[in-house]
């Protein structure tokens, strides 16, 4: 028991290096998924037919395949020459984009049509309406659902160890090989992931509270 504890404490510094890689991977993928996700949803809701078809296929493909298969496809077939970290960012990001776009889509489709009508009646173009009215409202309303992409990506990111990204799980594996104490180290790894998970969620909740608009979305209306 005590021995296990010392193994963990001795490894902690090394594992924290892995935490850094994990967080870099997750934030890069989240960002890529966000940008792509917005582009996808604008294409899907407002684009011409071929674009809509393309987005539908994209979403079907990236949501229909296991993370691991996508990683292997990109690692062995599509982008074999890129560094593994970059491949992992691209795969996790493109996959997240498929999910994020559908979160945004659900929100856009529920925005009141009056918002669009009002914007157009003021002489705004289609694009100005999307940029100044639809997207800002969508982002705010989508935030609670969107926030859940973080834990999903965090837990998915561990799979990137399959192509050799030296994130937290990979580093834990190295320590296991060096010390032979699998149980203690993998448990420690699990605890770190859980802390990252709920810590991140708390942070997002704080941000949510900060940018909320009275009476907008599902938060209760404070009449003054």
């Amino acid at each position: 028991m005590l021995e296990s504890l010392t193994v963990v404490t001795d490894s902690l510094g090394y594992l924290l290096g892995g935490v850094l890689v994990t967080l870099e991977l997750v934030s890069a993928a989240l960002l890529l998924g966000f940008i792509l996700g917005i582009l996808l949803v604008v294409g899907q809701v407002y684009g011409p037919k071929p674009v809509r078809g393309f987005v539908a296929v994209y979403v079907w493909f990236f949501r229909g395949l296991p993370n691991l298969i996508l990683l292997f496809l990109f690692y062995f077939v599509f982008l074999p020459t890129l560094p593994v970290f970059l491949i992992a960012v691209i795969v996790l990001g493109m996959r997240s984009a498929a999910y994020q776009s559908q979160i945004f889509r659900g929100v856009i489709e529920n925005l009141s049509e009056g918002q669009t009508l009002a914007a157009r009646s003021l002489g705004m173009t289609n694009w100005q309406t999307i940029k100044h009215i639809i997207i800002p409202q969508t982002l705010r309303l989508a935030l609670p659902s969107w926030a859940n992409e973080y834990p999903v990506l965090l837990t998915d990111s561990a799979v990137a160890s399959a192509i050799g990204v030296t994130e937290l799980l990979t580093r834990t594996g190295f320590r296991v090989a060096a010390t032979g104490n699998a149980m203690a180290l993998y448990l420690a790894c699990a605890v770190i992931f859980i802390l990252l998970n709920y810590g991140g969620m708390l942070l997002i909740q704080k941000i949510e509270e900060r940018i909320r608009i009275p009476g907008f979305g599902n938060n209760e209306c404070d009449q003054i």
Partner: peptide, 18 residues
């Protein structure tokens, strides 16, 4: 351009909620 010269007021206000 023409729409700017024709202000419109809606039954449900349609203020931009954000």
């Amino acid at each position: 351009e023409y729409r700017q010269k024709m202000g419109m007021v809606f039954q449900n206000f349609n203020l931009f909620d954000h």
